[in-house]
Design a protein around this nucleic acid. Sequence first.
DNA 1: GGTCGCGGTGCGTACGTATTCATTCGTTGT
DNA 2: ACAACGAATGAATACGTACGCACCGCGACC
Lengths: 349, 349
Amino acid sequence: MGETVGKRVESVTSHDVAAKAGVSQATVARVFSAPDKVAANTQRRVREAAEAMGYVPNAIARSLKSQRTHIVGAVVPADGEYWQSVLSAFSRALAERGEQLLLFSFDDAEHVSDALDSVEQYRLDGLVLASSTIGQEHLVRMRGSGLSVVAFNQPAAGGLVNSVSVDDEAGTSDLARHLLAQGINSAAFVGGVADASTDRSRYRGAATTLAEAGIALPYIEAGAYTYDAGYKAATHILEANDRPDAVMVASDEVAFGLHDGLRSGGIEAPHDILITGFDGLPQAAWAGYDLTTLVQPVRVLVDEAIAIISNSDTHEGEQVRVATGTIRHGRTTRRGIDDHHLSKREDRP
Amino acid sequence: MGETVGKRVESVTSHDVAAKAGVSQATVARVFSAPDKVAANTQRRVREAAEAMGYVPNAIARSLKSQRTHIVGAVVPADGEYWQSVLSAFSRALAERGEQLLLFSFDDAEHVSDALDSVEQYRLDGLVLASSTIGQEHLVRMRGSGLSVVAFNQPAAGGLVNSVSVDDEAGTSDLARHLLAQGINSAAFVGGVADASTDRSRYRGAATTLAEAGIALPYIEAGAYTYDAGYKAATHILEANDRPDAVMVASDEVAFGLHDGLRSGGIEAPHDILITGFDGLPQAAWAGYDLTTLVQPVRVLVDEAIAIISNSDTHEGEQVRVATGTIRHGRTTRRGIDDHHLSKREDRP
DNA sequence: GGTCGCGGTGCGTACGTATTCATTCGTTGT
DNA sequence: ACAACGAATGAATACGTACGCACCGCGACC
């Protein structure tokens, strides 16, 4: 183990390269930031020297000088399948544009504040705030910090900061219409957290549309946007006197739990009950679920968010983009194998 | 320079605060980086001025001076449930230590190189390389760049760079013993990508242990570590002349697909076949699967990785940590539902 | 042929902070 | 009471790069 003689890997700078190539530091800097301003001949000499010395431009110093970090921050909940897919999409989209992604994920609302403290110190080019559990006081604070902020799927943030979100209300409205087309006569709604703005919007879209058909939509709160919460919420359906024809769930992950919870109680979809989700997670396509759900146009939302961030002269609170999702038609609402019309089914053991 | 009187949302620096508080810039800097070196009285004045002006220390400048960014990079595949859980764990662990996480995720191997280019420019405190699809040439290159690198679950990297990984061989060996205890007489192994080092290790552990009991272990390659690949691989089992008693799968996500693929072919676990996975994903605990799997001690691995990175004087290639997982006993290997006595809670059609 | 224009390069400086060194002042030891 | 000392602070500098400005040489235009 004698190849490296001490910690001698230190910091070869543009000055070092300049000396070796026989040019000035400024020229070296230009080679790597504005190549068209340097003669081809000189450029080749510099690049050779840089290569030989293992020179790599220092992005930190560059950022300090240029006041642009090329880093976008993302504050995202640590848990939840949906947020992970959003994060993945952001990472991809930013990489394509040569931007880096600084990740702040948090368990509970407590840590959000700590994360935002750090956010301010790094002079990021932009900041994406995901999760509807971020309080308004944080939004206001970030707005004042001078960087361009965009709230992701947090409808309530509209007017405070830029925001992009899926059209929750239109989404559940579409799903409700789809259920009506299947001939349902009753339904229930399973939400995650009742006072989340997305939860309210999604319920409203469903309830309004069903009301037009004269169908009431009782609300059941699972308590969290998790599989377990959905599994437990199934008992509310199982123990009800008259079982609804369909259950609309506020998120796919909760829907998976509900699906399995109902099955453990002997209720199968779509035979005994119809189920719809929301989000369009990859798992919704898994054969084990094959869930009918509203697929969020994540890529569109992400691109919009990045566009807003890049366009730095957008005044805060002005941009409010809403994208509409599309229905994925899965097994869980596929009627007709053994019953063409809906009626209360008591023929199950 | 003079006092700029007017609307200045941008850049309130330590100099500005110093002027307002009637102290020098050095004192302001000390208040925020070494508070115990400043008199309480002065400190209060400075903090008040800073608060009033909305001063926030500039982490970029700090990093340039101190040569430490407090940012750790992570190169992680964009897809795959397992990697997302690892990422989540890293994010949490780093946040607790006041470090930030710069995320580089990639779709295919092409983009890895681009990502690593960026990695070098930001002078990160450390770098985590996840995914076994990172070529050795990249490892060597990173090793030479002077930052402390640690390979995550990439056994083949041992000796080249620091590495932490789960004990694949011991894991599948344990699972195999568990299966033997269930009385199996035949088995098959479904891998993801045949030439991945983790795939080979996991197969070896299973095959060796089963061989001791006189059981051969044919290898089936799913082609990828995805649900769909597992679903398709099920056909190999379904079409086989004599169906094995058990299938050991190299990853949970593939196991889920296999499970559902077998079910669609009328083969149910554990009634007709036993299934084991590997990784210990949250979904393995979902009632729909309840998969027997080897739970990776992700938190331990992550902590080890961070410890190696923090301990900057560890020479590359010296640290090779291996952690052993624990078996999660799920439904998919629970023999006796139909063989022996069992309290049937519900009948399956 | 002189001046204008322009591509190409060097010099100097600024980005905002951390830290070394020197200086001042109040305190303690004998 | 005087010297020695430590705590507190200010002045100056360095971290590595980008960019404005000045400068130089050379072809073009009138």
